[in-house]
C-alpha cells in the first residue's frame, strides 16, 4: 500500500501563517452557552477584515521560499489545498503564483478534500518531483474555516496554514520515507454547493470517521516501513479539537511528549486543510537532524494521508531564514464575539 516515488523527494522549504486575532472559546460560550464540560480549545485564530485563504497562502508560501533559498520562477507547480476558496470558480493558485513571482511557467491549481486537501496536494507534489517531471513544486494547506453561529464548530473553526516546497532529497531539510492513503466514502461532514456553512454528523465524526481513518493510515504506514512509535521524535495528527488527536495518538502508542511539538489546536483552533500541515511546520521548527516525524492528516468525506519524514542537517541552517510557527501563534490579539461577527462578516447587511 505504501507509495514511494522513483526519485527520493523531500521538503526543501516550509513556512507557516496564522492571523493575528484570537477568539477565546469562553467568548463563544458567553454568547451561546456550553462549556460546562470544558471547551474543545482555549481560543481560535480569526482572519482580519482584509485576510482570506489567498492572502494566508501567499504569506506561508513566501516563508517557504525564503527557507528553500530558490528563485520563485524555479517552481513548476503552485497548488493550494483548501475548503474556503476565495472564488468558487478561479484558482487561488494563480494569485499565489503571481504574488510569489512564479508565473508564467508553472502549474497552478486548487485541491479539495475537506481538511486533507493540503496533504492530498503534498502527496501529488511528491509524485511530480519524484517522477522527475519537475525539480520543485509548492503546495499549501490553508483555510479560513466556517462555523455556523451557535454550532459546536464555532468554538474551533480557525484560520491559518502552511506551505511546503518539495524537491530532490539531496537538497531537503526533511525527506519522505514513504506515504500512504486510507480513503472510504464516509459522510461525516460536508458543505453543499451555495451553502455558507458546513453540516456535520456530531458524534459520527469521531469513531467511523476521524479515528478509523487516522489510526488505520498510521498503523499501515508504520507497519510497511518497519517502524514503531518509539522510532519517531514527533507525531503530528489532524487537530479538529484538543481531545481527538490526543486520544488517537495514545491509541497508536505515542506519548504526550511525542505529540506536543505539533499540537497547536488549543492556541489557534482547527485550521482545516492547514491543520496537520501547520502542526508539521511547528514540529520542524523544533526538530533536530535525524529526527523522524510521522504526519497523518484527516479529511472528512473521508480519508487520511500518512507520511514518514526524516529530518536532515539542512534544518539547522534554514530554520531561521523565515518566521517560526510560534512567532505567529504568539502574535495574538484577543477580540470579543461582536468583533468576530464583524470580521467574519456573519451579519448580512442586505
Amino acid at each position: 500500500m505504501i507509495m514511494r516515488p522513483s526519485r527520493e523527494v523531500g521538503i526543501v522549504g516550509y513556512g507557516a501563517y496564522v492571523p493575528r486575532y484570537r477568539l477565546p472559546a469562553e467568548e463563544v460560550g458567553r454568547i451561546w452557552g456550553g462549556g460546562q464540560a470544558g471547551y474543545p480549545v482555549r481560543e481560535k485564530s480569526v482572519p482580519g477584515l482584509d485576510e482570506d485563504t489567498t492572502t494566508m497562502a501567499i504569506e506561508a508560501a513566501r516563508n517557504a521560499l525564503r527557507r528553500a533559498g530558490i528563485a520563485a520562477d524555479e517552481l513548476r507547480a503552485v497548488w493550494v489545498g483548501t475548503e474556503s476558496k476565495t472564488y468558487a470558480v478561479k484558482p487561488t493558485g494563480t494569485i499565489v503564483a503571481e504574488a510569489l513571482g512564479a508565473t508564467p511557467h508553472t502549474q497552478a491549481a486548487d485541491w479539495e478534500f475537506a481538511c486533507k486537501a493540503g496533504t492530498e496536494a503534498l502527496q501529488a507534489a511528491i509524485g511530480l518531483v519524484g517522477s522527475e517531471m519537475v525539480r520543485y513544486a509548492l503546495i499549501a494547506g490553508v483555510d479560513a474555516a466556517q462555523g455556523r453561529p451557535g454550532d459546536a464548530l464555532e468554538f474551533t473553526a480557525g484560520a491559518g496554514g502552511a506551505a511546503y516546497i518539495l524537491g530532490p532529497r539531496e537538497e531537503s531539510l526533511a525527506y519522505c520515507e514513504g506515504s500512504l492513503s486510507y480513503v472510504t466514502d464516509t459522510p461525516d461532514f460536508f458543505r453543499r454547493a451555495h451553502e455558507r456553512y458546513p453540516s456535520h454528523g456530531g458524534r459520527f465524526t469521531g469513531e467511523p470517521a476521524y479515528f478509523r481513518h487516522i489510526e488505520r493510515a498510521a498503523t499501515q504506514l508504520m507497519q510497511e516501513l518497519g517502524r514503531k512509535p518509539a522510532d519517531y521524535a514527533t507525531c503530528v495528527l489532524h487537530q479538529p479539537n484538543s481531545k481527538f488527536p490526543a486520544r488517537a495518538g495514545k491509541a497508536l502508542g505515542f506519548t504526550a511528549e511525542q505529540l506536543a511539538a505539533g499540537m497547536l489546536v488549543s492556541d489557534i483552533g482547527n485550521c482545516y486543510a492547514g491543520s496537520s500541515l501547520i502542526g508539521l511546520s511547528a514540529a520542524l521548527d523544533r526538530a533536530r537532524p535525524g529526527d523522524r516525524i510521522l504526519l497523518v492528516s484527516f479529511g472528512s468525506g473521508a480519508g487520511s494521508d500518512a507520511f514518514s519524514f526524516v529530518v536532515t542537517e539542512a534544518i539547522e541552517e534554514r530554520r531561521n531564514r523565515a518566521p517560526l510557527t510560534w512567532d505567529y501563534v504568539r502574535r495574538r490579539h484577543p477580540i470579543d464575539y461582536g468583533t468576530y461577527v464583524r470580521y467574519r462578516q456573519k451579519l448580512r447587511m442586505h
Binding site: D52, L324, W326, D327
Partner: peptide, 15 residues
C-alpha cells in the same frame, strides 16, 4: 477581489 500591498508592523521573531 482586488489584492495588493499593505504594510504591517515588523513581525516579532524569536530568532
Amino acid at each position: 477581489v482586488i489584492y495588493g500591498y499593505k504594510f504591517r508592523p515588523v513581525l516579532e521573531r524569536e530568532a
